[in-house]
Design a protein around this nucleic acid. Sequence first.
DNA 1: CATATGGGGTGAAACGGTTCACTGAAGCGA
DNA 2: TCGCTTCAGTGAACCGTTTCACCCCATATG
Lengths: 326, 326
Amino acid sequence: MPQRKRATIREVAQATGLSTAAVSYALRGLQVSEETMHRVRRAAAELGYEADPNARALASGRTGMIGVLCGSLEDLWQQSLAVGIGRSLREKDHYGLILDAAGDPDRERTLARQLRGVDGLIVQPVDPAAPFWAGIAENIPLVTIGDALKEARTAAEVVFDNQSGVTLALEYLAGRGHRRVAVLTPTLAETPDRPADRLVTAEAARLGLEVSVQTCPQGLGPAAEAARAVLRDRPSAVFCFSDSIAYGVLKAAGDLGLSVPGDVSVMGYDDHPMSELLGLTTVSWDLEGIVRSAVRLVLGAADGTLRRRRVVQKPTLRERGSVGQR
Amino acid sequence: MPQRKRATIREVAQATGLSTAAVSYALRGLQVSEETMHRVRRAAAELGYEADPNARALASGRTGMIGVLCGSLEDLWQQSLAVGIGRSLREKDHYGLILDAAGDPDRERTLARQLRGVDGLIVQPVDPAAPFWAGIAENIPLVTIGDALKEARTAAEVVFDNQSGVTLALEYLAGRGHRRVAVLTPTLAETPDRPADRLVTAEAARLGLEVSVQTCPQGLGPAAEAARAVLRDRPSAVFCFSDSIAYGVLKAAGDLGLSVPGDVSVMGYDDHPMSELLGLTTVSWDLEGIVRSAVRLVLGAADGTLRRRRVVQKPTLRERGSVGQR
DNA sequence: CATATGGGGTGAAACGGTTCACTGAAGCGA
DNA sequence: TCGCTTCAGTGAACCGTTTCACCCCATATG
């Protein structure tokens, strides 16, 4: 690797006969006269100069990098979310460093702890009650997506109104005559007391539904395998806590020769683009809005110009035909 | 934001009564005795010390960061690829910085140029013939995925044998009696002379197929819209140069009340997990293998221990039922 | 016993920017 | 003309690591 040396700011300074300070200012459009600014910029372009982000980060304390810690990128909807956030950050001259907790609180903790040198953090927490968050949130502007943290004061939060989401889904199922409903929630190894479980149980009790809650992986293959077992009990409907899981259920139903919604109804959660194609009835969130909010909040927190600190997202029910009348 | 100051290496040095050099070595398991190593590690843990990656990068010249420049993250398969690469890099103690050229050569150029402070680059080039690559590949260990670069000597390449892929697809279609085939390739604004086009045209001529090649966006909605127009001409089959496009075609077919494969056959390219669920017949690549190769190659190139420089990926045809006999 | 050997550790110079405190000159009102 | 402000630009400290060139001392070697 020859690794031809890149131009440094000193060389630009030399080429223009200015100090490095002047060059630094000029390139950022600060403090200097129009004329020198152009002179410097031209010289920089000629030399092919681009500032070393590491040196810049060390000196200025800001990296232009935002950590994006996802709950589980196995889930297609979260992939879309991460990609959306990355794109949106790029539009505001930042980079998104996408990280995957893979549904594992330990991994989440390790990643969050190790992460330094970012200006801010967008987290979709796997374990919102974990105590270690406090230490992180104190050091880095942190914005949550989904559940808010329990033990830490974060800079801001984009909260999903899961209560409404669950109510929407279960009321719809109940209204169409379903009584025995299987519920599949994402696998979160070792997270004691998943909040989703409680929501579902409470709501089901209210509606007189007989639910059985189980965890399920998010990959299509594994999810389908888990779903096959569930479908053998012949629930009248399956409520999946992510569209990715619902896709697994659809796969399993197909494999078992069950028709949807004839033999079994399937309700999703999230509304990934593919759900439209598959005709999956699902609880829908405004992905674009979530992305916009999260990015605005984290950048605001990073430079101290934060307005609102809490945005609540309301879900809607997208009726498509995977849930039948019973 | 109080931003409580994080511990520096100097504080750890003070706490242990050693020099910063000793601490630096100790934390990386170099040069020091077992005993001091433990002492330092304990002290570091107590102080909650984590090295500042920027300072480390500036001093050592390596960041532990690999740029992952994707052709278009609109495409679900490329999303999977990016996520896979990110995960694989993380397993080898590196971070993947995922960037999206969004199918636009200009964007690609800008991103590639601006990118500094990474130890290596994995690129799925939008415009492999662009001349600017030479300047980049000369400065950063660069590994391509898909098409190899034309005008630049890269560190290594993972090449897709698209010739075989196209042959596989078109021969299959021809063998099942299709003659009028519409071809949809991803939109690449302004890329003159897309290699895919030539492959298809040549192969179609050989097989006596009547093809019409058109570009198409990758998002489900836009792709479906583009597909509707194509389907009005009633080709007997549509060959899509990415599964995402195929999903759009399936959507359009559904909207128009056309059955697949009854009224129209659809052939995909890539083999995204969802294609199994949708029963899409497609040209399949070994995603895991691609990820492994790319990561191994780029890390090898970054630390100079590179063995093979070129890995060729062969496709297989995954027959699922979206292509009928004509 | 004098001399190589080498493990364990130190001090200080990088790395490539940003920013603070300051200066000289020009502009301006009184 | 004088003092005051503003503008454009400078020099050097600083950011937090890594790493190079040494040094010291204990042990093995001839």
